[in-house]
C-alpha cells in the first residue's frame, strides 16, 4: 500500500498556449498533477480541453511554456537531449490515438523499434534473436502473436492499437501514457484494448490514460478532470 502512494511523475504549474492568428489560445493555465506508482489514472475532459497537450508534455513529446515535470525526482525539461531520448526510449511508453506505426515495417519490427533504437549496430547481430523474442512476448501479451509478420495496413484499428501498445511496453517502461487509445475504435475493439490496459495495471504497470468517455474512464483507479486549463478539484481521493 505504501508503494502505491509513491509519486512517479509530478507536473506542476504547467502552462501552454498556441498562437491563433493575433491572439493566443491558452490551453493549459497551470496544471498540477501527480501520478503515483502502480495506479491507473484517467485524465478526462471535453474535446479540445487540452488533454492531449498535457499528456504530450508529461511524455516529453512537447514542451510547456511554463511549469515543471519531475519524473522520478528529475526535472525532465532541464535535462540533456541524450537523457530525454533515453527516458522516451526506456521509461515512458506512449500510445497515440492514431497509432503512429511505421507502414514500411511489419508488426514485430514496429514493436522492436524502441529496442532497435537502443541497440548500436555492432551489437545488433548478437542480440537480434533475443530482442525479437522479447517483441514476440509482448505481442503475445496483447494477443497479436500470429500477426507478427503482417504490415500495419493489413490490420484492423484495434490490432494496430494493440501493436502500438506492444511497442510502448517492449522496453518495460515505468510509465505507460495512452492518449484516447479507444477513441478511434468501435466498442468491441475498444473493450479489448481496455482489458489489456486493465490487465497490465493489475500486473503493476502504472498507466495514465486520456479519454473524454466516462464509461472508459470507469476502469481507472482515479479520475481527474481538465477544465478551463486546470485540473478540477477531485471529488474524492
Amino acid at each position: 500500500m505504501d508503494k502505491k502512494k509513491e509519486t512517479i511523475l509530478n507536473a506542476s504549474g504547467i502552462c501552454k498556449s498556441y498562437p491563433m492568428g493575433r491572439e493566443q489560445l491558452t490551453v493549459l493555465r497551470g496544471v498540477d498533477l501527480s501520478v503515483r506508482r502502480g495506479e491507473f489514472l484517467a485524465i478526462m475532459g471535453a474535446s479540445g480541453s487540452g488533454k492531449s497537450t498535457l499528456l504530450h508534455i508529461m511524455g516529453l513529446l512537447d514542451r510547456p511554456d511554463k511549469g515543471q515535470v519531475h519524473f522520478d525526482g528529475d526535472d525532465i525539461f532541464t535535462q540533456g537531449r541524450g537523457w530525454q531520448d533515453r527516458i522516451r526510449n526506456r521509461e515512458m511508453g506512449f500510445v497515440f490515438q492514431f497509432y503512429h506505426l511505421l507502414p514500411e515495417l511489419n508488426v514485430v519490427e514496429n514493436v522492436m523499434l524502441p529496442l532497435m533504437v537502443a541497440t548500436p549496430l555492432w551489437q545488433w547481430p548478437g542480440r537480434r534473436k533475443n530482442l525479437r523474442q522479447r517483441a514476440l512476448e509482448v505481442l503475445a501479451e496483447v494477443g497479436l502473436k500470429d500477426k507478427a509478420a503482417q504490415r500495419p495496413n493489413t490490420l484492423s484499428g484495434g490490432e494496430r492499437q494493440r501493436t502500438a501498445i506492444a511497442r510502448a511496453l517492449v522496453q518495460k517502461p515505468r510509465l505507460l501514457l495512452a492518449d484516447e487509445p479507444t477513441g478511434n475504435l468501435d466498442w468491441r475493439a475498444g473493450k479489448v484494448i481496455l482489458e489489456v490496459l486493465d490487465r497490465l495495471n493489475r500486473q503493476g504497470q502504472t498507466v495514465v490514460m486520456v479519454t473524454h468517455d466516462a464509461a472508459v474512464a470507469d476502469l481507472a483507479d482515479r479520475k481527474v478532470f481538465l477544465r478551463d486549463g486546470r485540473i478540477e478539484k477531485p471529488k474524492k481521493d
Binding site: 531520448d85 527516458i87 522516451r88 526510449n89 506512449f94 503512429h100 506505426l101 524502441p114 533504437v117
Partner: peptide, 11 residues
C-alpha cells in the same frame, strides 16, 4: 516517421 522514431527515443 521521423516523429515516430523520436517518440520512441531515437535522437
Amino acid at each position: 516517421d521521423l516523429g515516430i522514431v523520436k517518440s520512441v527515443g531515437g535522437s
